[in-house]
């Protein structure tokens, strides 16, 4: 297995873990932060595949601003989810 394939596998495994955590965790603030991590891993994957424009957008919008929006919303609702 080459270095690049190993890198991809590493990121993909972490992405699945981050996705499951952000869905399962009760605390909504944790969920939003982990969702930001998921976006950032997605951005790394786009960059690795050569789609630099998409990676840039994902980093700015996905990992940056939308994480801030989610946190801002969590502060205005109840912290823990019911399920």
């Amino acid at each position: 297995m080459t270095g690049l394939a190993l890198f991809n596998l590493f990121i993909l495994v972490f992405m699945v873990v981050a996705a499951v955590i952000s869905l399962r965790v009760k605390d909504l603030l944790t969920a939003s932060v982990v969702f930001g991590i998921y976006s950032f891993l997605m951005c790394l994957l786009w960059a690795e595949m050569g789609a630099v424009d998409v990676a840039f957008t994902e980093a700015a919008v996905g990992a940056g601003v939308s994480a801030v929006f989610l946190v801002a919303t969590v502060f205005n609702v109840k912290r823990s989810s019911s399920d």
Binding site: V52, D53, A55, F56, T57, A60, V61, G64, V65, V68
Partner: peptide, 25 residues
């Protein structure tokens, strides 16, 4: 820079705008 170099390097209006908006946030 991201906005002005959008047609030379990765970037453009959307990314530059989001970064600019983030500075106000």
């Amino acid at each position: 820079y991201v906005l002005a170099h959008g047609h030379v390097s990765p970037g453009g209006g959307f990314q530059g705008g989001v970064i600019m908006g983030a500075s106000f946030i």
